[in-house]
Design a protein around this nucleic acid. Structure first.
Length: 498
DNA sequence: TTTTGAGTTGTTCGA
DNA sequence: GTCGAACAACTCAAA
C-alpha cells in the first residue's frame, strides 16, 4: 500500500465526515461529533453506481441530488471546508482515503435499507480492525426502527399503536445548530486523489433536458428546505387537516424531496411545528398534530422496511402472491403518460412527469387506478414512481404502494376502490388542478371537467374536443373495472383459499 | 391463554 | 338530497 499522501501528526489527524442521505449542516449529529473533536475535517460524498445490491436512484432523484450536493458544497466551502466527491464503492474508496490522509476517525449518519446497512456494517468492521474510530448516528428518523416495540416486545404492524408507542419512548431531541466554521484540513487546497467534480458524477439529464420546469419549481439544498418549511408554517399549516386533501391548492408542505435528500431532518420539522403551534394556538392543535402524524407515517414506513427488507419487491401479506395480476403493456403505458381518459388520474400522472412530484391525495387515486382498475401489479407502479419522483424513498414509496394494494401492513380493505370521478369532484371541485395538467380539456365547464365522456356533444364541440382525438375516452369503464377488481381480490381472500 | 376492541385516506345502495 | 349500512372478515395489540 502507498504511504499517506499527507504527513499528518497524530494529534492533527483529520476526521472523515461521510455525507450520504443527510445533505445538511444543521441537525447533523455526525457533523456535530466531528466538530466537537476539534480536528481537521474532510467532508466526502461517494456516489456508488457499482454495488449491485444497491437500488440505483431514479432519474428524478439523481437530478435532485446534483442540486443538493451543489448547495451542500457551497455552504461547506463558506465555512472553510470543501466537499470531496468520489465515484465507486465506499468499501473501496474510504479505506484508501483513510490511508492517504491518515484519518483517525470517520463519522456518518445511518441508512436503513438492508443492503446499505450490510455495507456500512462491513466497512465499520474493517476500519475498526485497522484502528480507525467509527461512529454512526441517527440523523434520519425521530426514533430508530428497532427501538419502537409493542408491550410484548415485538415490532408493530398497525400505525396507531406504533405511533403511540414511539411517542411514549421519549421526547423528540432538539436539533443541533449548524457549525459556524469548520477547521480545514492541511491538504485542503489540493484535490484528494481519486476525487471527481460534480459534473463527473453525471447526475443531470442530457438530451432532452426534461428537468427544465423542475428548475423553476424546486430549490434543492438546505436553504430551500428551510424556506419550504417556513412557507408551510406561515401559510398552510392552519387548515392542514382538510387542506391536505386538495391538490388544487398549495396546502401541503412539499418537504418530501428535501427530507429524502436529508436537507432537513424530522427533528427540525418536529420542533418548528411545535413552536408554531405554541405561538399561534397556545394549545394542541388538530392541524399541527395531523401534520406531525404524517411525519409519523414516514417513521412507520421505516419501521416496516426494517421488519421486511424486501418491502419494495415482496408482498407484506403473502396471500397476495397468488393475486391474478394482468400483464397489460398498453394500459400501463397509458397510465404512465396520463392518457387513461380519467382527468384526475391523468392530471396526477402528468404532474409527476413534469414536476417530479405528485400530491398525496392524487398518488392514492392514481395508484388505486393502476392496481384496481387496471389490475396491474403494484410493483410496476412502485418502479415508475421510483424513477420519476424527486422524493422516491425506499420506505415510503414501497409501504404506500403496498398500503393501496391491500398487501401491506394495516392496509386499505380491498373493497375500497377509489372512484376517479368522485375523487376529482370532491378534492378538485372547480377542476383547477385538472386544467393545469390536462390543458386539452381546459375549455370544458366545471360540471364536466372530471367526466368529459358524459358531456353533451355540443359542449364538447364548443370546448374544441373530440374524445378519442385530443383527449382519450376512458380506457376502462369504472363500474365494470370495479366489479372485476372485487372478484379478483375475493379470489385471494382467506375464505377462498381454505 | 383468551378475549376484546379497534383499525388514515372509500363507494354504493337503498331507505 | 341525505344518511346509515354493507362491503368481509382479519389481524393486531393490549388487557
Amino acid at each position: 500500500m502507498s504511504e499517506p499522501s499527507w504527513d499528518t501528526k497524530a494529534e492533527d489527524a483529520p476526521v472523515l465526515l461521510w455525507f450520504r442521505e443527510d445533505l445538511r449542516l444543521a441537525d447533523n449529529p455526525a457533523l456535530a461529533e466531528a466538530v466537537s473533536r476539534n480536528r481537521p475535517i474532510i467532508a466526502i460524498y461517494v456516489l456508488d453506481d457499482e454495488t449491485a445490491d444497491f437500488r440505483p436512484p431514479g432519474a428524478a432523484a439523481r437530478w435532485w441530488l446534483h442540486g443538493s450536493l451543489k448547495a451542500l458544497a457551497a455552504s461547506l466551502a463558506e465555512r472553510g471546508s470543501p466537499l470531496h466527491l468520489f465515484r465507486g464503492s465506499a468499501l473501496a474508496v474510504i479505506p484508501r482515503l483513510v490511508r492517504q490522509t491518515g484519518a483517525a476517525a470517520i463519522f456518518w449518519n445511518r441508512r436503513y435499507g438492508a443492503a446499505e446497512r450490510a455495507a456500512d456494517g462491513k466497512l465499520k468492521q474493517e476500519l475498526k480492525a485497522s484502528g480507525v474510530e467509527v461512529q454512526s448516528f441517527n440523523g434520519h428518523l425521530l426514533f430508530e426502527p428497532w427501538e419502537v416495540e409493542s408491550k410484548t416486545g415485538g415490532p408493530l404492524k398497525v400505525f396507531t399503536p406504533f405511533w403511540r408507542a414511539a411517542r411514549e419512548l421519549r421526547e423528540v431531541p432538539m436539533p443541533v445548530a449548524a457549525p459556524a466554521s469548520l477547521r480545514p484540513f492541511a491538504g485542503e487546497d489540493k484535490q484528494l486523489p481519486g476525487s471527481v467534480t460534480l459534473e463527473d458524477l453525471d447526475l443531470l439529464p442530457k438530451s432532452p433536458n426534461w428537468a427544465k420546469e423542475m428548475e423553476t419549481l424546486w430549490q434543492p439544498g438546505e436553504a430551500g428546505a428551510a424556506a419550504a418549511l417556513k412557507r408551510f408554517l406561515d401559510d398552510a399549516v392552519e387548515g392542514y387537516g382538510d387542506g391536505r386533501n386538495r391538490p388544487d391548492k398549495r396546502s401541503t408542505s412539499r418537504l418530501s424531496p428535501h427530507l429524502r435528500a436529508g436537507e432537513i431532518g424530522p427533528r427540525q420539522i418536529w420542533h418548528a411545528t411545535r413552536l408554531h403551534e405554541q405561538a399561534h394556538c397556545g394549545h394542541s392543535s388538530r392541524d399541527h398534530e395531523k401534520f406531525l402524524s404524517e411525519v409519523g407515517w414516514r417513521e412507520f414506513s421505516y419501521h416496516l422496511l426494517f421488519q421486511s427488507p424486501d418491502l419494495a419487491t415482496a408482498n407484506f401479506q403473502k396471500r397476495f402472491d397468488a393475486f391474478p395480476w394482468r400483464d397489460d403493456g398498453e394500459a400501463f403505458r397509458a397510465w404512465t403518460r396520463g392518457k387513461t381518459g380519467y382527468p384526475i388520474v391523468d392530471a396526477g400522472m402528468r404532474e409527476l412527469w413534469r414536476t417530479g412530484w405528485m400530491h398525496n391525495r392524487v398518488r392514492m387515486v392514481t395508484a388505486s387506478f393502476l392496481i384496481k382498475h387496471l389490475l396491474i401489479d403494484w410493483r410496476r407502479g412502485e418502479e415508475w414512481f421510483w424513477d420519476t419522483l424527486l422524493d422516491a424513498d425506499p420506505a415510503n414509496n414501497a409501504a404506500s404502494w403496498q398500503w393501496v394494494a391491500g398487501s401491506g401492513a394495516d392496509a386499505a380493505p380491498y373493497f375500497r376502490i377509489f372512484a376517479p370521478v368522485l375523487q376529482g369532484e370532491k378534492f378538485d371541485p372547480k377542476g383547477d388542478y385538472v386544467r393545469t395538467y390536462v390543458p386539452e380539456i381546459a375549455g370544458l365547464p366545471d360540471q364536466w371537467i372530471h367526466k368529459p365522456w358524459q358531456a353533451p356533444h355540443p359542449i364538447l364541440a364548443r370546448a374544441g374536443i373530440t374524445l378519442g382525438k385530443e383527449y382519450p375516452l376512458p380506457i376502462v369503464d369504472h363500474d365494470a373495472a370495479r366489479q372485476r377488481a372485487l372478484a379478483a381480490f375475493k379470489s385471494i381472500s382467506t375464505e377462498a383459499a381454505s
